[in-house]
């Protein structure tokens, strides 16, 4: 399990990193926390010609408050997200989910942007980004652009990132007053990729229903996926069991070694019902 040999360059700025990638061609990879990339290299699942180390680009690190949103630098470590007062205050969904990302050693090195850019189907952060309607800031040879989370995650490890394009920041709008979140996942061991997971944001209450809902399942499909059926049912004020019953309607669900497709559909429904029940209980208590 030794990687094949590769060239190594360290970039001082995001612009330099993109320029290096352009020079090296499609077989170059950006190296951030290395928690997924280096394992892939050692398995020789990926044999890039060059690693472009972006780890020391200070501008890509940290969490900043901007107009109505938090802007998270792609190099911000999971551990920094977990320790952030701003995140805890404004993005409680992320604050809760971050503790389910792998194990402490991985959270110390792994980066928020790395997780988004890799787009593992069972990862927590892409699901949260999708539930929160995040905007991805990308920098390519032709300059910067922004892509909404709904258009960013395209398939199995597939995103809107073009070859040579670098994710620099993730901008997450702060949810409005009256919105609430839900998060739950089922993993056979703490820190494992989930057999099924749920990240959701519910808009302010309107009668029995909700102003809007963004229901995202992860670990059940080729990527984090929204459930239009469940969202519609929740907005319409359906009971939790009814919302759960249609949780995975119309979704392409794939089984894996730990759970078959039918089990994943069952889990998605259980997670959604339990979180809706919990929210309903808590709101009724207030």
């Amino acid at each position: 399990m030794k990687s094949s040999s590769f060239a190594y360059r360290r970039a001082a700025t995001a612009e330099e990193a993109v320029a290096l990638a352009r020079e090296a061609g499609e077989d170059a990879r950006f190296l951030a926390g290395g928690q997924s990339l280096l394992a892939a290299l050692n398995f020789r699942l990926d044999e890039p010609c060059m690693l472009i180390d972006i780890g020391r680009i200070g501008a890509l690190r940290g969490i900043r408050r901007v107009e109505g949103a938090l802007k998270i630098g792609a190099l911000t470590r999971h551990a920094e997200i977990a320790a952030s007062v701003e995140i805890a205050k404004h993005l409680p969904l992320v604050a809760q989910a971050i503790h389910e990302v792998a194990h402490p050693a991985i959270r110390n090195r792994g980066t928020f942007g790395g997780s988004i850019a890799l787009a593992d189907a069972a990862a927590e952060m892409p699901a949260c980004a999708l539930a929160l309607g995040a905007r991805m800031h990308l920098l390519g040879p032709d300059g910067p652009r922004r892509v909404a989370a709904d258009e960013f995650f395209l398939g199995l490890y597939e995103t809107a990132l073009e070859p040579g394009e670098l994710l620099t920041h993730v901008e997450i709008p702060i949810p409005p007053a009256g919105a609430c979140h839900g998060f739950a996942e089922l993993a056979r061991r703490r820190g494992d990729y989930a057999m099924a997971g749920l990240a959701m944001m519910l808009g302010p209450r309107t009668g029995a229903g909700r102003d809007w809902a963004r229901i995202v399942f992860f670990g059940i499909a080729d990527r984090a996926v929204r459930s239009p059926s469940a969202e519609a049912a929740i907005v319409a004020g359906a009971a939790p069991e009814e919302c759960a019953a249609c949780a995975t309607d119309g979704l392409d669900v794939f089984g894996d070694m730990n759970a078959a497709e039918s089990t994943k559909r069952h889990y998605a429904a259980v997670l959604l019902r339990r979180e809706l029940d919990r929210i309903s209980d808590e709101e009724n208590r207030v």
């Binding site: 056979r188 061991r189 703490r190 820190g191 494992d192 990729y193 070694m257």
Partner: peptide, 24 residues
């Protein structure tokens, strides 16, 4: 150790072969 029908070991990594961990 999970095998496919044709004798391929499917979970030969520490991510896929689950040993009990302290948290459990």
């Amino acid at each position: 150790c999970l095998y496919s029908q044709d004798g391929q070991l499917l979970n030969a990594t520490m991510a896929d072969y689950l040993v009990p961990m302290a948290s459990e």
